[in-house]
Amino acid sequence: MAEQAVTDTPETGAGDGVRRRDFINIAAVSAAGVGGLATLVPLISQMAPSADVLAASSTEIDISSIQPGQAIKAEFRKQPVFLRNLTPQEIAAAEAVPLSELRDPQTLKERTKEGKLNWLITMGVCTHLGCVPLGAGEGEVKGDFGGYFCPCHGSSYDTAARIRKGPAPLNLQVPEFEFTSDTVVKIG
């Protein structure tokens, strides 16, 4: 196009004219490019979670019926979440472990709410590749460390749901949650 502009303007012959004409062509092509890029925004963001999915991303759970030593599985964001009422022994076992022995050092205190040390609430999603670990249901194996055991690749979690053995890199994730009353937990 630059060539074109040169032959176009024999009468002006001025370099200014050439640049001005080039400028319009470049501006037009740039505008088309900007328009194209702006169009990508809706085309891409349509794949992000839709409003109904986002709205369903908090859930309230009644924990009044969970006895010490028991756990339940609930659903949060279409994934399992484990709510576990720890026994004093389990709490003691978790607190007895020195942090230096842990792959992902965290204390039980950091993983629970103040004054509610017995309520261990974690995602039921193995941090290795996303399987659901065993140990929440009655009679399920709890692994070598008395917490959870992932049957897919053999990751074992302790009574604070911290990774102790196997390929998983991190402790079971603790979702955002709060106690809306003594017996109701709001997750998300």
Partner: peptide, 13 residues
Amino acid sequence: EHIMRDVNWGWLM
């Protein structure tokens, strides 16, 4: 209608 109401930019699509 889900596309029209809840999907991001779904109404536009």
